[in-house]
Design a protein around this nucleic acid. Structure first.
Lengths: 133, 133
DNA sequence: CTCTCTGCAAAACATTTGCAGTCGG
DNA sequence: CCGACTGCAAATGTTTTGCAGAGAG
């Protein structure tokens, strides 16, 4: 799946563009719908394949929502960081904290684990959505 | 879904028991299979419904595997904690650290978010599995 | 008795895959 | 031209749901 030649196609560009115009995370389904709304006809399967490829190449961030759905986002800050996602509007705040990283690494090595990757996601209600539920 | 009366049935007990005899996390599918192996006939749907109810009542820990599958475990330590799961054998180590909690809460309130829940999962390779890949 | 629980089959969903046709380089 | 890319439909795999009957209290 990795290190394969990628061609530049209309649909590839379309997915890339829609991702560029989208703040926060969006699922493949949502992106497909959004493309459809804009008039770009791209097959759902292609959206999935393209996103998978982009994620593979590290061009997009991926996270799994509370419901298990995969969500993608244009990769802005390339460093390792985590997210605070609003349940209501999907707005995303970034959380950067060396503390967690250190803690995770320390705990991992204490148990002798290697190749450890971790995910941290926080879901809550943002100020705006709190006012009008 | 919450605060509903729960009845004590054979299948309820069966699920509870199998969970009790299982170390680490297991998916609903796995538990259902295990029940079948033991001779306890319980419908798959019932396993799902029961696990959901138990999770709802805080009787079991729930975590979503890397593949998005939900996995359940008998709730040992009732406090809030996180997991270090071995990709190879599924072995689970618990990680307790006030630091993360504090950090998460602090970050959440800094952004004005409320009702914030967070998940942290670490996946790696344990010492045993490292030796024989 | 009453109301929750169960089983089974069907449905709902997100995601993947097989294939024949398309098209970038 | 060649092989990667696409669309569509069909397949997967997990989780949910509808409904009639069973059983706990």
């Amino acid at each position: 799946m990795t290190e394969i030649e990628r061609r530049t196609t209309r649909q590839r560009r379309a997915v890339h563009d829609i991702l560029q115009r989208t703040d926060g995370f969006a699922s493949a389904q949502e992106l497909h719908q959004r493309l459809r709304d804009v008039g770009d006809k791209v097959g759902l399967a292609t959206v999935y394949r393209t996103l998978a490829a982009m994620a593979d190449d590290g061009e997009v961030d991926v996270l799994r929502g509370e419901d298990g759905e995969l969500r993608y986002r244009r990769c802005a800050s390339h460093g390792h960081h985590h997210h605070l996602v609003c349940r209501g509007c999907g707005r995303v705040e970034e959380m950067i904290g060396a503390a967690v990283e250190t803690w995770a690494e320390e705990a991992a090595s204490r148990h002798g684990f290697v190749d450890v990757l971790h995910t941290f996601e926080a879901f809550g209600t943002c100020p705006d959505c709190r006012e009008r539920p």
